[in-house]
């Protein structure tokens, strides 16, 4: 039965899922929009974030330290990747980038398996976030999910500030449109790109670390969120951070509402057995349908990036 409380709770769930996706999508869309690089290994950075956070939290008993370590590890790995291989691919065909970064996924998955073993790792919610808050009557909500919503919104505001009000942000915007001009003005473009890539990697690492307490920290966790992230930035329009935010929230909401309400709706229309199957199938493909519809309507996504 659908009550106002349940609807509100599901909306919060959608928001939380959207915020999580945004953390991933922001980094991916920046790299994509500014360096024109398709980075499939973005999911690997997410996985590294989660693994490092889990290990460090377990060793030090401090989730905060775990998050910091994840940021550092993912950021450094990202910059190392950029410096050693990816920067050679900026001017190459997108397909070369796909092949190379796919190779990196295979490498990181196996490396993590060798370093940490094939079993999933343990990472629990920190004590002060492990309870629930009952601000919707009758529906206690996990504090940790509220924490993620908060953290994600803070990151979104910081990013906005960074891009609009700081010198780095100005260079990012300028670099996206007039690469040569920025270079001619004496800015070290290579350095700027490494920094942007590192920033994107840190965001992915943060997403991984934050997801860790809720999810299985396991090999292959990156690919599961990677495709969703691509869906998000495509819907939002490549290169647009605002688009990534809107796209992420849209995907989060559609996915959550689909899973939450389709079974009930279908049971009104069909017999129970086929209703369950149909509802499950429909909610599985809901976000892909959303993306297809958006693209058929707006072939370049909802928002235009700075560059294009």
């Amino acid at each position: 039965m659908l009550t106002i409380e349940l609807f509100f709770e599901q909306s919060l769930n959608g928001l939380q899922q959207g915020v999580m996706l945004f953390l991933m999508a922001a980094g991916l869309t920046l790299v994509f929009g500014i360096m024109h690089l398709i980075n499939l290994a973005h999911g690997s950075l997410y996985m590294i974030g989660a693994y490092v956070a889990a290990s460090v939290t377990q060793a030090s008993d401090s989730f905060t330290l775990g998050i910091l370590a994840a940021l550092v590890a993912a950021g450094l790995t990202g910059m190392l990747l950029e410096f050693s291989a990816l920067r050679r691919l900026y001017n190459r065909d997108h397909l070369d980038q796909v092949l190379a970064t796919f190779g990196m996924i295979l490498f990181f998955n196996e490396l993590v398996k060798i370093l940490w073993g094939p079993q999933a790792l343990f990472l629990s919610t920190p004590e002060f976030l492990s309870g629930t808050l009952e601000f919707i009557p009758g529906a206690p909500y996990p504090s940790y999910r509220l924490f993620i919503i908060g953290a994600g919104l803070v990151v979104a505001l910081l990013l906005r500030h960074l891009i609009i009000h700081t010198r780095v942000g100005m260079l990012i915007r300028a670099g996206a449109t007039h690469r040569e001009m920025v270079g001619a003005l004496g800015v070290n473009i290579d350095e700027l790109y490494t920094i942007v890539f590192g920033l994107g990697a840190m965001l992915a690492g943060l997403a991984g670390a934050l997801a860790g307490p809720m999810l299985a920290v396991e090999v292959g966790m990156g690919e599961k969120i990677l495709i969703l992230t691509f869906v998000v930035i495509i819907i939002g329009g490549i290169g647009s951070v605002r688009g990534a935010l809107v796209g992420a929230l849209l995907v989060g909401m559609v996915d959550t509402y689909g899973r939450a309400f389709l079974p009930t709706i279908m049971r009104e229309l069909l017999d129970p057995a086929s209703a369950d199957t149909v509802a499950a199938s429909m909610s599985s493909v809901a976000i892909y349908v959303l993306m297809a519809v958006v693209l058929i309507w707006k072939p370049r996504g909802l928002f235009q990036a700075y560059g294009s």
């Binding site: 349940l6 709770e9 599901q10 769930n13 959608g14 939380q16 899922q17 529906a139 999910r145 809720m214 999810l215 966790m221 599961k224 969120i225 996915d255 959550t256 509402y257 899973r259 939450a260 079974p263 129970p272 369950d276 199957t277 509802a279 499950a280 909610s283 599985s284």
Partner: peptide
Amino acid sequence: EVYTKLGQVDYAAELAN
């Protein structure tokens, strides 16, 4: 009786229901 997506990661919506 709920059937979820294979490989699903987040169960918040199902848990609320």
